[in-house]
Computed example of a mutant assay.
Amino acid sequence: MNPYLIREVTDKKEIEKVVEFQDVIWNKRNTTPYPFLIASLHNGGILIGAFIKEELVGFCYGFPGFCQNEVYLVSHMMAVQEEHRDGGLGYKMKVKQKEIALKQGYKKIMWTFDPLESRNAYLNIAKLGGIVKTYYPNHYGIMNDELNGGLPSDRFLLEWDLKKSSVDCIPAEEQIQSCISWEMVEDMPSPLSLEINFNQVDYYKIPVPKDIHKIKERDFVIAEKWRFQLRDAFKHLFDKGFRLEAFQTTNNLVNYYIVSSV
């Protein structure tokens, strides 16, 4: 039985709960304040809450965006209580966000996420069907909070077409060329060299650690290598017109992004 009630949040007392929830999750850093949430919700913003009875255990928030004559929802924040993670709650909140966004007339939702966060990549690309064509190096500057750990804050810009089915198609292995080699250092994956030969190959795969946080705790230099190798790979590929549209999980300590020219 699903214990969660997932619904839109508009009541002022519940909006205050979201602000308090942010303070707990992010230690009062990088939070969206109450007045901004109120103003946003009165002007096209959407706030989703996940509840167990009256307790808030997760939220998802987005505000309206506009660029080049296109209106879309910017999904700015999502968080889940630690004990409720890995149970599909993030996916359920995104589905509810999509449902409400469509009712409000949105056709696309966009948001940024860290390319090194394998768990987020699986949700955003493999499960929801978003695509990535844009890479922002050090998007927010150096963020010395617990989550970012002092690494440059590189971000993907994910685009989620709400009218498109979320089918994540992985091409046959013989069609994909690897462009970053890696090795084991102690029991951690560490990137080696970047090699991209643009020779009529339609698909490339790029490894990403399954748990970058453990690597940051144990060897910051290796974590930093992953940051810069992925940055170089994606900037080269996106500049050539490739786009990221699939994510492959494995039994190793890395998963793979799959980029396509078609």
Rank of each mutant, 00 (worst) to 15 (best):
E83R: 14
S75D: 14
A39T: 15
L47D: 01
G49H: 15
Q229S: 07
A223C: 13
I46Q: 03
V18D: 01
D161Y: 05
Y72W: 11
V95N: 07
V208R: 08
K108R: 10
N124P: 01
Q177R: 11
V132I: 11
D202P: 06
K92G: 08
G44S: 10
E99P: 09
L194V: 03
I6L: 04
L194W: 01
L157T: 02
K214G: 15
R7S: 15
F247L: 09
I176F: 03
R29S: 15
G44Y: 12
Y34C: 06
G65K: 04
G58R: 04
K225E: 09
T134R: 05
I38W: 07
E217M: 10
G88C: 15
S166F: 01
D23K: 14
S261K: 03
A101I: 11
H76I: 04
Y4L: 12
L128C: 04
I25P: 10
G45C: 07
F238T: 08
K103E: 15
D11K: 03
F198V: 11
F234D: 03
N43K: 13
V185H: 13
R155F: 09
N255S: 13
G130A: 15
Q104D: 09
E245A: 11
V262I: 11
Y257M: 06
T10W: 01
T10H: 12
D202Q: 14
C67L: 13
S261T: 01
E245V: 08
P64R: 08
I206H: 11
Q68E: 11
N144V: 03
M1V: 02
F63P: 00
N2R: 08
L147S: 04
N43Y: 11
Y34N: 06
V254P: 03
C67S: 12
F247R: 12
I48T: 10
P115S: 00
F113E: 04
S181Y: 04
R231M: 07
P35N: 14
F220P: 01
I15T: 09
V259N: 02
Q175W: 03
K235E: 09
G88D: 15
D187K: 02
I206V: 15
Y203T: 14
G58D: 07
S40Q: 04
N252P: 00
I170A: 11
Y72L: 06
E8H: 08
L123I: 03
P191V: 15
G62V: 01
N27K: 10
L116V: 00
A246K: 12
L157S: 02
F242C: 02
F36Y: 07
A172F: 08
K98P: 06
D239F: 11
E224A: 08
L73Y: 01
K17L: 11
E186Q: 13
C60L: 06
R155C: 08
N255Y: 07
K92V: 13
S75N: 15
C169Q: 12
G88K: 15
N69F: 05
Y257K: 06
P171F: 07
A223S: 15
F242G: 01
G241Q: 04
H42E: 14
I215C: 10
P3A: 04
D154P: 08
K216L: 11
